[in-house]
Computed example of a mutant assay.
Amino acid sequence: MNNPLLMTPLNTALLVIDMQEKLLPSIDTCGPVLWNTRRLLDGAAILKVPVLGTEQYPKGLGSTVPELAERMGTLPEKLEFSSCACLSDQLAKLQRPKILIAGIEAHVCVQQTALDLVALGYDVLLVVDAIGSRFRQDKRIALRRMESSGVTLTTTEAVLFEWCRVAGTPEFKQISQLVRENPPT
Rank of each mutant, 00 (worst) to 15 (best):
A92I: 01
L23T: 14
E181N: 13
T152K: 12
L143V: 08
E157H: 07
N3G: 07
K93V: 07
V33P: 13
P4H: 10
L94N: 10
A106E: 03
V179F: 13
T169W: 00
H107R: 05
I27A: 04
E70K: 14
G103R: 08
T113H: 06
T169M: 05
L153S: 04
G53Y: 01
K78T: 06
Q56I: 04
E80H: 11
L40Q: 09
A85H: 12
P25V: 04
P25E: 04
L120K: 14
T156L: 00
V65R: 04
F172W: 15
R145K: 12
V108C: 10
G60S: 14
C164P: 08
V124N: 07
S149E: 15
L6P: 00
V159W: 01
E80Q: 14
E80S: 15
E55H: 02
N2R: 12
T37A: 15
S149H: 12
I101E: 00
V51N: 06
V118K: 12
E162G: 05
S63P: 14
E77G: 12
L23G: 06
L100Q: 09
P32Q: 14
S133I: 00
L41H: 02
E171G: 14
A114V: 12
R145M: 09
Q20G: 11
T64Y: 00
C30N: 15
N3A: 06
L52T: 07
G103F: 05
L91K: 00
L94D: 09
P50C: 00
D18W: 03
T156H: 03
L61E: 11
G168M: 11
L94I: 12
D138R: 10
E147V: 10
